[in-house]
Simulated scan of single mutants.
Amino acid sequence: MNKILLILVFALGYVLGARAGRKRYEQIREKAQQLWQADQVQSAVHSAGDLLENAAERVGEKAGDVIGKARSKGRDA
Score class of each variant (00 low, 15 high):
28 I>H: 06
38 A>S: 15
55 A>N: 10
22 R>F: 09
47 S>H: 06
44 A>L: 13
47 S>M: 08
29 R>Y: 05
49 G>Q: 12
56 A>W: 06
38 A>P: 00
29 R>N: 11
53 E>L: 13
59 V>P: 00
39 D>C: 00
61 E>K: 04
26 E>G: 00
26 E>Y: 04
47 S>Y: 08
27 Q>C: 04
58 R>I: 07
33 Q>W: 08
40 Q>D: 15
46 H>Q: 15
24 R>V: 14
25 Y>H: 11
54 N>A: 05
30 E>Y: 07
67 I>D: 10
49 G>Y: 01
68 G>C: 03
70 A>V: 13
23 K>Q: 08
33 Q>P: 00
32 A>C: 02
26 E>D: 14
37 Q>L: 10
54 N>D: 13
65 D>V: 05
60 G>R: 01
41 V>K: 02
41 V>C: 11
58 R>F: 06
68 G>E: 12
64 G>F: 01
42 Q>C: 07
65 D>T: 12
26 E>C: 01
67 I>M: 07
21 G>A: 12
32 A>V: 13
34 Q>F: 04
48 A>R: 10
38 A>L: 05
26 E>F: 08
50 D>E: 13
66 V>H: 01
34 Q>E: 15
30 E>A: 15
22 R>V: 08
35 L>C: 01
23 K>S: 14
70 A>G: 09
48 A>H: 12
63 A>G: 01
53 E>C: 04
57 E>P: 02
68 G>Y: 01
65 D>S: 10
40 Q>V: 12
50 D>F: 03
57 E>G: 05
29 R>C: 02
40 Q>K: 10
48 A>G: 12
44 A>G: 03
27 Q>Y: 04
45 V>P: 00
39 D>R: 04
41 V>R: 02
46 H>A: 11
54 N>L: 07
61 E>T: 11
43 S>V: 01
25 Y>C: 05
54 N>V: 07
62 K>G: 02
59 V>F: 12
35 L>Y: 11
56 A>F: 09
20 A>P: 00
29 R>T: 11
48 A>D: 07
58 R>T: 04
43 S>C: 05
33 Q>M: 09
36 W>R: 13
30 E>C: 03
60 G>W: 01
63 A>D: 11
36 W>M: 13
